[in-house]
Design a protein around this nucleic acid. Structure first.
Lengths: 208, 208
DNA sequence: CCAAAAGTGTTGCCGGTACACCCATGG
DNA sequence: CCATGGGTGTACCGGCAACACTTTTGG
């Protein structure tokens, strides 16, 4: 009765929600896209296994990572039980090991490419949870750099929710609820007016 | 790497939230209270294992039952990974096998009695989820009989939330949102005015 | 006639949404 | 001087919380 862990690693890239997939190097399903994951090592904690997988593929740690759901009989893999996690990373901090055997790469979530082991079910579930969490937590902190413009933050929300938001209402909310605060510094934009840089008041997951 | 399933079965009894515990008949932790559960049978689905445990202990099926969280290293049991579920039952429909070896019995959640395998952590987590779900779903349908008075429904909410609610606001909400509807029948109360009986518009879990 | 629970409306507040214009900058 | 994105305030609406009295019944 083997236990496996898989991690749905999301980022926002070019105004699209993306997920990290690897190309399976071993049978079964060699050559197909799949979520990073593997069997739980003896004596290893579930959370530790998820963190290990995340760091192996992206080089990042200390980001939002949370258990999602436990599936059984996913495809015809070796594991009878698959504990899934999801993580949110700022693409600017990730360093994919693209020259490695399994070729990790970002893929848009819409449309989700064909995956082995019914991993698309896991991704769809993770996406739903992410959309919900955006609305009542500050998890977005894990998708953005230390300092950022509110426009960029709004684009991140829009990419995930799949709908446009009102600029003034968005700003009032995130500042008013104390999710972010202005730093006083500006970022010069190419041909435009400089924009205020903001930062998160807390970089730990919080319920609003 | 064994996988176990445990079920947190809640009911409301005498205006208190209660949980079903069994007395362990085998080592380890013989004689201590614990959640119903056991190892996943070969070829069995997680959901099926949870349903089986629930029906074994209470005789009920077709109630609200949902996966909760997957723990590792709970106490020093045989299982490395424990997939927890939580269920809601109407106490009027349950028939505990009290003469059986493991003496299943209801216990108040506050205070939670001492349990083996850190099962109190699982119970606390389940209680939190239940309180949240009460607010944005109709899961309470699974704690009440076919027909019931709004007063009884409100007492159920109050028992779970641990706070008193306003009668008029409560009624407006549950009727207004279409969670319940009046049946037109009345229930004669002992020394009081008869009360209207209500029923749920749907007995499937719904998000409001 | 008394105790106990059933039933019923109104008001105020707050949060969420809709909506349009001016300004600074670089080319 | 023009194109581009940055930045700001107000008005309406709906949901939620607070709040008290009358009625029916059985004993």
């Amino acid at each position: 009765m083997a236990v496996a862990v898989v991690v749905v690693i999301f980022t926002v890239r070019q105004d699209r929600l993306n997920v990290l997939l690897i190309e399976r190097a071993a049978e079964p399903c060699k050559g197909e896209w799949a979520l990073p994951g593997g069997l739980l090592l003896p004596g290893e904690t579930l959370d530790a296994a998820a963190r290990r997988k995340l760091e192996d593929e992206t080089g990042v740690s200390d980001v939002f990572l949370e258990q999602l759901y436990t599936f059984d009989r996913l495809g015809e893999g070796k594991a009878e039980v698959v504990v899934s996690y999801f993580a949110l990373v700022d693409i600017g901090r990730t360093r994919l090991r693209s020259e490695s055997e399994w070729r990790p790469a970002w893929h848009p979530v819409h449309p989700t490419p064909p995956t082995a082991f019914e991993n698309d079910r896991v991704i769809a579930y993770a996406e739903e949870r992410l959309r919900n969490k955006l609305e009542y937590t500050n998890v977005v902190y894990s998708l953005l750099p230390e300092r950022f413009t509110l426009t960029r933050m709004q684009q991140t929300y829009e990419a995930i929710l799949g709908e446009r938001l009102d600029k003034r209402n968005f700003r009032r909310r995130v500042v008013g609820l104390g999710i972010v605060r202005p730093t006083g510094r500006f970022e010069k934009q190419g041909a435009h007016r400089p924009a205020m840089l903001y930062e998160f008041t807390s970089r730990k997951p919080m319920i609003l």
